[in-house]
Design a protein around this nucleic acid. Structure first.
Lengths: 343, 343
DNA sequence: TTGAAAGCGCTAACAG
DNA sequence: CTGTTAGCGCTTTCAA
């Protein structure tokens, strides 16, 4: 049984260990944090005592005196968006493996919440990972100047980032639609403040120009299934035969709306989503979408951040990492409907 | 522009404010934490100075000296399970509203991870909310003795809890199936360590006995869509015409498997899920399931916890709160298939 | 290699 | 109402 210090049952401190071993508290501190700077025999005595007393370092105290908190913040715009599940799991696993604690915050798609969270985290965390930031480039750059920070899906010069390369997959998606005979395609845009959406649209319109087909942008729409209805209506009204949506949430919402309206997918309208979130494979019809290794993106982001925090021997620090994306074809896309004007 | 203390750019402390106002640091502390114990004029001077210096309290220091951290831990067994989204959002909103920080941890369906997290959190958090604990009753009771703790979906004598009343909804589900003509029903069980699953099964078998129909338990199955295939196969093999699944994840997985096997839902097999998670309404066919106010459950759990942390004037503390659940009928249930034996 | 001492920034008695 | 004085538990000089 683990004895408690002096019979009390409050958690043991280094002083308890020091007393038990007849050494100074500072020696205990060293033995526990920098073992090689302590005589091996006393070190072992101390470690044994620590185990015996069931010692657990107090992270607050540690943080206060050392300046490092052992925690890193992870900011996501919407925790209920399945896209972030795997990302969060990826960061959490990698962080835990490195002995860090994850501080997960839902910034509610709000740049203000994001900014204030970032500010608060400067004291609370050693670094921050920001997914799909809604902040301006300048704000982000400033934040990155004040604290170690890496973004996910946000490309700002001077800010380390892991980018999920959906733009290139978007061209693939367009080619897929073209090969099916579509010539009028809509891009269903995400939030104005989303750089992903912007990059996607740029890539898409360039690709369209190359291929001589027509694409138009509809929106912006909030990245939620509820937006799907408006998006679907807009798409139908615009006369396109296929849509590439900002994300799967919107795409799934569109699927539902089109079904309500009796418009068949994919016969009368093809839909392509993005992210391959939970649900994309079992919605009706299953969604053609762009998939990427999101959990891995989370891990990579953590690695990049930790590399900044602990500038060890290892070579230079990566400041930009691009994750590949590929098209996963399912039932929501098919050949374009025959033109309605008879020959 | 906010001036920085003494021209340095390190974050301002109460000492900087004290110096600027010509008062003692402790007065600043009071003015900021217990404003009513300070002369209104000096208080205002101090608050102005704090704003001017862009003062932000250091939570570590605060925690170290006061013993309170301003954080509460929220433990969930699987962060990628959509069931927890709304729960997490509920706790986060309520916590933030009360000025607390949420420490979200994914315990990976592991009792060990859960136990060690709980231990670590004793220092780091003022209290803990544990959803769907995989711990034994004794372990949970012990943990609740050492730190303020409230469970969600886990009923242990002496431990405050918010319970989502799926057992009662389960009877509703059974009645629904019976009214459709089903007489042989299977319960697709969740993890052995899940008390929810156990309670559900108890309620279901009692209700079945009352109504004179046959139910059997199949499983246990992991609460993931991947388990759906095995569950579906087991159900088909057992000869039942309807299933009540531990949760929607499994139910959705079953839907997929049955489709693969060419078994029509609901014509040949009816499926009822539980939780009404993201996806239950747009899977194919849409899932009949049991819905409950999960976000609210999260809020209630937080309220109960905070009531323990701040024993204010308000009357007695609720130690148990039951959230209602109701059946949401969608396309995955229908009349029982006619018996295969002709008259 | 070890000990003593001085904080980290804040709160909490205890006087005044 | 306000100032003084101790710490919270740990790290980190600086000597020894």
């Amino acid at each position: 049984m683990a004895m408690q210090a002096a019979g009390t049952d409050r958690p043991a401190t280094i002083h308890d260990i020091a007393a038990l071993c007849g050494v100074a508290a500072s020696t205990v501190s060293r033995a526990l944090s920098t073992p090689d700077r302590v005589n091996i025999r006393t070190r072992e005595r101390i470690q044994a005592a620590a185990a015996e007393l069931n010692y657990l370092p107090n992270s607050q105290a540690k943080a206060l005196s050392s300046g490092r908190t052992g925690a890193v913040g992870v900011l996501v715009p919407d925790i209920t968006n399945p896209f972030y599940f795997d990302l969060i799991r990826g960061t959490q696993l990698q962080l835990k493996a490195a002995g860090y604690t994850q501080l997960l915050v839902d910034t509610e798609e709000s740049d203000e919440v994001e900014a204030s969270t970032l500010e608060q985290l400067r004291k609370t965390a050693d670094g921050v990972i920001v997914a799909a930031s809604r902040l301006t480039d300048d704000a982000l750059l400033a934040a990155a100047g004040k604290a170690p920070l890496v973004t996910i899906n946000r490309d700002v010069a001077g800010v380390p980032a892991v980018i999920i390369d959906t733009p290139s997959a978007t061209s693939q998606a367009l080619d897929h639609l073209i090969s099916l005979g579509h010539t009028r395609v809509a891009y269903i845009a995400g939030p104005l403040t989303s750089q992903s959406s912007e990059r996607r649209w740029t890539a898409l319109s360039e690709a369209a120009q190359d291929r001589g087909v027509e694409v138009r942008s509809l929106g912006p729409f909030a990245p939620k299934t509820q937006s799907g209805a408006a998006a679907a209506d807009a798409a139908v009204h615009s006369g396109v035969t296929a849509c590439i949506a900002f994300n799967d949430l919107i795409a799934i919402g569109m699927l539902q709306r089109l079904r309500e309206r009796g418009i068949r997918v994919p016969e009368e309208m093809s839909i392509v989503g993005c992210d391959d979130i939970f649900g994309a494979d079992f919605c009706n019809p299953p969604l053609t979408t762009m998939a990427s290794p999101i959990e891995q993106a989370g891990r990579v982001a953590v690695s990049m951040l930790l590399a900044k925090l602990n500038p060890l021997a290892g070579g230079g620090i990566r400041t930009r990492s691009v994750m590949p994306t590929h098209l996963t074809v399912r039932g929501s896309t098919a050949a374009a409907p025959a033109p309605s004007t008879a020959p």
